[in-house]
Amino acid sequence: MKILTCPMNGPRNINEFQCFGPVKNDPDPATTSDADWARHLFRADNSRGVITEWWRHVPSNYFFLAERNATTNEVIRTFTPQDAEARP
């Protein structure tokens, strides 16, 4: 079983976590066309390489972000939403 390192609780078995999917750039619902909004809802990029995802540590209900290589499943880093801007 994979280990994921929670920024608050440290390294834990990944079955203590729940993935909430890749971070999306939500378009403005007031100005986006129907087609683009439908695309936003139903089309997942499903891209290769490094993606940033939301994760929840279930026992502590702590939400954080993880950069994960979707091809190799390697987790590059995990960080708090507050640190999201401070990317290296």
Binding site: Q18, W54, R56, V58, N61, F63, P81
Partner: peptide, 13 residues
């Protein structure tokens, strides 16, 4: 519902 609420607010702050 509780998890979803926390998830949304992790984004809305």
């Amino acid at each position: 519902v509780y998890a979803d609420m926390l998830f949304w607010n992790a984004q809305w702050q």
